[in-house]
Amino acid sequence: MSGGFFSRGFRGRRRPVEQGTQLPPGQYLVEGFPVLSAGPTPRTPLEEEWDFSIIGEVDEPRRWTWKEFQALPSEEITRDIHCVTKWSKLGTRWEGVSVDTLLEGVETAAEFVMAFCDGGYTTNMPLEEVIGGKAWVAYAYEGEPLEPEHGGPVRLLVPHLYFWKSAKWVRGLRLLNHDEPGFWESLGYHNHGDPWREQRYWGD
């Protein structure tokens, strides 16, 4: 963990914490940013290899190089995040491209989406969970480029669901007509993952 996250003086901007009122059930508050990785940290060369794509059940696949991706309209996002391992972090600040922007003009009848990543990680969601201003592809955290250990160059940000849905090192979205379980969803973790309904495991 880089010490940089703690030295930029943003603590004062956090919303006051009234514990128990802002946290989903079973969660506790952390100040740091725990790192959870299920594999090695990929380091794909940005200029030569990296791209972001929308594929699957679409009229025509979309693809952006790193340069093109950075030129897309971006948004600043401040949201609470909740990990299924029970830590929550309030008022995290991100910058990135809305999934709405990426899907602009895309014609599809798909109802589901699978995020795919460098390193082979996947996570699935209904398409409606990532549209309408609910999900972003983020490349900056607290005003700095997103560090590789936290998913840089870009990670998906779906803050209203447990944070495993906010896939690190995301490289694209595959639109699907049917639902498929992703990496953790196929290993006993809840298919939907709403922290306010405490959907941690199968059967919750």
């Binding site: 725990p34 959870l36 990785s37 299920a38 594999g39 299924v84 391992t85 029970k86 495993w164 953790w184 290993l187 973790y189």
Partner: peptide, 10 residues
Amino acid sequence: VYEVRQLGTI
């Protein structure tokens, strides 16, 4: 082996 905190072991 990657121990992913309380999430799992890969």
